[in-house]
Structures are given as C-alpha cells and as structure tokens.
Write a protein that binds this DNA or RNA. Structure first.
Lengths: 168, 168
DNA sequence: ATATATTTTCAGAAATATTTGAAAGTTTAA
DNA sequence: TTAAACTTTCAAATATTTCTGAAAATATAT
C-alpha cells in the first residue's frame, strides 16, 4: 500500500471509529488529517482533502478546538488561519479523557446525588433496588473520577511502567 | 422527588448518556429499566413502560443480550419470556469494557498493523509523520488492551485498593 | 474609506439512524 | 392436528443528526 492510500484509509477508519463513540464523523476525520499532516493546514486544505463544505469544515474545526484537540497557528505574512493537532497520542488521549470526564462523568454524578435523595419507604422493594443501583453507579463513578483525574496528570512512562506492572 | 419521578428521570438520562457513547437510546433505556426493576420484566412490560413498539423492544432486548448485559429468565408455568440485567455495576462496567475492547480496540489495532506496512521513503516528511502517528496509536492501543484485559479480570476491591493507592 | 480576503452563521437539504407495525415464523397446550 | 400465545423480521415511515452553500460578518490591505 502506498502512502496516499494509507492516509485515505486512516482518515476513513478514524471517522468510522469516532462514530461508534458519539463523535461526529467529520470532526474525527479532520482530527485524523491534522494528526498525519506534518505542516499546519488551512480550512481550504481540509475542505479539499476531505471533500466537505466550508460550513462543515468551519464548525468542526471549532469543535475540535473546543475539545482542545486542535489549535490555530499564526503564520507570519499569511492571511489565512492555519491549524494543527497535537501529535503525541498519549497527550491526545489524556485530553479526550479530561474533556469527557468534565462533560459527562461529572454531570452524571450530580444526577446520582439528586436521585439519591428520592423520598419513600426504604423497605419497599422497588425503592430498595432503585437506591442500590444509584448508589452503585455513584460509587463506581466516583472511583472512575478519581482514577482518571490522576491519570490525566500522569506521565506516559510513569503510567506504562507502573500500571502494567501492577496489572500483571 | 418521589420514586416514580426519579425512575423516569433515571431512565431518560441513562438513555441520553448512552447516546453520547454511541449506544442507541432505546437500548440504554431498556437497560436502565431492567437495572432498577427488582423483578424480571417481559417485553410487553418494557413496551408499556418505555412507550416503544414491539419490534423496537425485541431488537434492542436482543442487542442487550448480545452485549451480555441482559439475560432471559424462565419462570416456570409462564408462557412469556422474562428478562433481567446484572445489577452489580462493577460487573456491568467490566462487561461493557470487555465488549467494546473486542468490537473496537482489537479491529483498530489490526488496522494499525496493516497501515504500519505502508511502503515509501522513510526519510520523506509526510511518510515519517504518518508512521510515527500510526506507531503511537498502536503503542497506546496495546497498552490499553493489556490494561483493560487485566481490569476485566480484577475484583472490585482489589481494583479500588490498589489502583487508587497507586494513583495518588 | 474602499475593496478584497477570510471566517462565521444558519435555514433548508441530505444523509443516517431509529422506530413502527403488520406479516411471517415459532412454540406450546389441549 | 389445530389454534392460540408469543417472538421475530423487515420494508417503510419517522426522527435525528449532519452537511451544504450562500449571505452576513469580520479582518486586512491599499
């Protein structure tokens, strides 16, 4: 397989992969494109490479920036804006974990706190089952929260060396 | 808040939450319903509780079973099939990790292996960047694969006690 | 100031994913 | 058997998400 074909396949697969994780295809594809581009890209570069419209490109580039996965680059003397992505995959993964934690785990824990306050007879079977499930989710969520917090602060080597050793 | 309202909200939120993770709303809602139901439920129970059609219920119940998150229960003397879900959230989480790993991580690593074979001049900047990204993803993926493998074999307490201690 | 380049917005169009419901299939009881 | 109870299937309908493209807004150069 040659490079062009490999890139094409990487971008397509990354997009499909994103779809399974609630990330829109174009955003994942733009990210993939930036990952494998040695130089910063303009919006027009991406529109052409991925065959997408101006509006779509613009919106998804900005979402990527919102996720902390891409950033604007100023190139002196150039009128257009350029964009790049962090290429260290470990940092990328940490960033994604950090964002999803903030956007999803934390709100979910708040909901559990609220649902834990449900009023009713705790000897009732329905009530008991409900509260146990809520408590279980909360407990797991809190563990995950703590663990991921530490994870995003960890350095890669530290992570590999320790975690893999522990998990043997 | 009373129990009925709390249940309603839990089911709705679980469904919305699932959506962010590439899981269809109905499947997540059925799962939520089973989680908080002390007794096994029939398809008709679920159709009524969630206001969904027969076909939708049937298809998603079977998907849940395919994910190992629900199972059929035979109740002697009853004609209808009943369904339950594992209520230990730690086991549920492990099961989800196990399935997603099999369905997504493993195929992704296979793709990286293939893309790593891309032919071309390794001194070319485009080529170099591409191969480095692929290698990075592969490396992270393999770590995750190993780690998650051990995770799904771990017992909850063991996990809590060790991991949280390590990650301090 | 004016023109030109570039970015952003957003209503409608298109694509994708989900759901319905009726018909076909299967199982069980008598 | 036969019939009733129940489950499964899937084409079409619906709902949801994503994408387009042209117009508006903004920024930059002359």
């Amino acid at each position: 397989m040659n490079l062009e074909e490999a890139k094409r396949q990487f971008i397509a697969s990354w997009g499909a992969f994103g779809t399974n994780w609630g990330i829109n295809r174009t955003m994942a594809q733009i990210h993939a494109l930036l990952l494998i581009s040695p130089n910063p890209q303009t919006q027009d570069d991406m529109m052409e490479a991925l065959n997408i419209s101006r509006g779509n490109a613009n919106m998804n580039i900005r979402d990527l920036i919102g996720w902390g996965l891409a950033e604007r680059v100023i190139i002196p003397g150039e009128r257009k804006e350029y964009f790049t992505a962090e290429k260290d995959i470990w940092k990328v993964a940490k960033q994604i974990v950090k964002e999803r934690k903030k956007r999803e785990l934390e709100p979910m824990l708040q909901l559990m706190d609220k649902l834990e306050q449900t009023e009713g007879d705790k000897r009732d079977k329905e009530m008991k089952t409900f509260l146990e499930v809520i408590a279980g989710i909360k407990r797991l969520g809190m563990q995950a929260d703590k663990t991921l917090d530490t994870l995003v602060k960890a350095e890669e080597n530290w992570f590999i060396n320790n975690l893999i050793k522990i998990f043997r």
